[in-house]
């Protein structure tokens, strides 16, 4: 009991951060599922979403800024696919990966240019930043809101993928481009759709994540992006439930480690986990057994 009350704040923080990682991780895992591409720019898309909200709140009220941020992020994700990945559709996968790394640096440097290298203060979003008391712990509403919102979004996404025609088309395209085309499926549109979904979730994740932080800098997407990526690998890249479980695990464990007082090692945990997964179960929790494309 004493242990619980002492660690409850960390556990809550873990669940919350885990939920935010999950929203990012789904973008990695879906894009990988369909293109066999690790979208290195995804973490930076998440960072850009943070900056877009900051700049738009200087002009618009929040009820406009938030939807605007989501729309801009979605358009950004879609455009990156169209401009940087689509022309390389028939190139070796390594080329697309290098293109993704290029986009990542481009976004970071663009952000550096626009922000002038100064940390940009993230606005306080009322309600989700209000304090809330749960048992012995006092925290922000966002802590509780994140896992709830994440679960609702994931259920909605699973419904879409498993029970709609576009979802079926997404699963078809993820196994076989050419045969999907023979069905009359527009493969490019389906791929765009996965980028739309991934960027949408990253934008939501960014709203929740950055409301816990004072500011956004051009490299703000790096760490959460990396952790979400490890979560996706741990869960079995390509699997959405896997990504969610991996993200929750990473979020909770790194915060419990902080609770024990080993804050310095909390980030290291993620990378130790990555090494162990790659060594002992490279396909992750729910990964398909090496049914690689080509």
């Amino acid at each position: 009991m004493d242990f619980l009350s002492k660690n409850l704040p960390y556990l809550l923080a873990g669940i919350s951060v885990g939920g935010q990682y999950a929203l990012i991780a789904i973008g990695y895992t879906m894009v990988y599922g369909i293109l066999r591409l690790i979208n290195f720019a995804h973490g930076d898309i998440f960072m850009v979403a943070g900056l877009v909200l900051i700049y738009s709140t200087t002009v618009f009220p929040l009820y406009i800024s938030i939807p605007l941020t989501i729309i801009v992020t979605v358009i950004l994700g879609m455009s990156i696919e169209k401009i940087a990945y689509r022309p390389l559709r028939n190139s070796p996968r390594m080329s697309v990966m290098i293109s993704a790394i290029g986009v990542s640096y481009l976004l970071q440097n663009l952000a550096l240019y626009i922000t002038g290298g100064l940390a940009q203060v993230y606005p306080t979003i009322p309600f989700i930043s209000s304090p809330i008391t749960i048992g012995p712990a006092t925290t922000k509403v966002v802590t509780i809101l994140t896992p709830i919102l994440m679960i609702i979004l994931v259920i909605g996404l699973m419904q879409l993928i498993n029970h709609t025609k576009i979802g079926m088309a997404m699963r078809s395209v993820s196994t076989d481009f050419e045969t999907s085309r023979l069905m009359g499926i527009n493969v490019n549109n389906v791929i765009s759709m996965t980028f739309v979904i991934g960027s949408f979730l990253a934008a939501i994740g960014s709203l929740l994540y950055f409301s816990n932080y004072p500011s956004v800098i051009p490299t703000s997407g790096g760490m959460p992006g990396l952790k979400a990526f490890v979560a996706a690998v741990f869960g079995g890249i390509g699997s959405i439930p896997g990504a969610v479980i991996g993200a929750m695990l990473i979020g909770i464990v790194e915060n419990l480690i902080k609770g024990v007082g080993w804050t310095t090692f909390s980030d290291a945990f993620t990378f130790v986990l990555l090494i162990f997964v790659l060594l002992f179960k490279p396909t992750g929790l729910f990964g398909e057994a090496a049914t690689d494309k080509v």
Binding site: M168, R171, S172, T175, E178, T179, L182
Partner: peptide, 11 residues
Amino acid sequence: VPEGRRVFVNL
């Protein structure tokens, strides 16, 4: 009907 059947195995 493509060579090698190419059904969507996970559907």
